[in-house]
Design a protein around this nucleic acid. Structure first.
Lengths: 145, 145
DNA sequence: CAGAATCCCGTTGGATACTG
DNA sequence: CAGTATCCAACGGGATTCTG
């Protein structure tokens, strides 16, 4: 809940906002991103983008490794945010289906860039980690040290 | 100069395909994403993308609201992953400068899509949240709405 | 100035048991 | 089947203090 005064002077090299310097907008976007960037939201989006429409148990199986508690929590939050649609069939035994909304799909597409980035640079990242482990003092210091 | 521009605006399909592709790749990408999707990494990237090169205290001030401990941890992890370069000047008082690597900048660009998405859909999200609070039983059955 | 070390609390999240 | 409720361990992360 800190209201960080982000007296930002955003140069044109950072494309988001394109001149927007509203700290409130900044905080809002920040909150949204931290919301969707949790452990499971993007995985649920990916799974539903692949399979279209899934029941609770199916969804859990496809996501993989998620506990029932967290899947429920994640999916409810996503429903509240309008990312997915939850359809309850009033029958016994219960049947609940989940599918993405248009906004949810668009988020998946937007996040695709990050996914591709991770795929593309994963070797570099692993190499950097190895190098960091063996040589933490690899600083490029011009002139001394 | 900018060879990492991929210009992915409308991916035809998820890069994993409809069927399960490499699960190991999937796990790797998942790990990378969960790594960068913490509370501060993207904000550090944004700040360094704006200001180019900053010392530790400057970086903390520009990011805003980050504790020294978390900034240190975040920045070390980013260095290990090759996202930024940490330059130590062996002098008294110490001087440490941080700037993004090419990979770090490309991550900022990739993440830009998500940022734009959050800006574009924030009103929809807030509206959905309000609707969810007032009417958690929005649409349950197909045909009842 | 840039951090390392310590303390401490709130949240996350898993495992389990129970219910309609 | 699709949850809810509860307990509890692990982690995140802020505030503070200390050091080279």
């Amino acid at each position: 809940m800190n209201d960080s005064m982000h007296a930002v002077t955003r140069p044109p090299q950072w494309p988001h906002g394109s001149g927007q310097t509203d700290p409130e907008l900044d905080r809002l976007v920040r909150e949204i991103i931290s919301r969707i960037a949790d452990k499971w939201t993007m995985l649920v989006i990916e799974t539903l983008a692949e399979h279209g429409c899934l029941r609770f148990t199916q969804l859990a199986a496809q996501v993989g490794g998620v506990s029932q508690k967290m899947l429920t929590k994640t999916v409810r939050q996503m429903e509240a945010d309008g990312l997915l649609l939850r359809t309850v069939y009033p029958q016994v035994p219960p049947k609940v289906e989940y599918r993405l909304t248009e906004i949810g799909m668009s988020l998946g597409e937007a996040f695709c860039g990050v996914w591709l980035w991770a795929e593309r640079h994963r070797h570099s990242i692993e190499a950097s980690r190895q190098a960091y482990l063996t040589q933490p003092e690899a600083d490029a210091m011009p002139g001394s040290r």
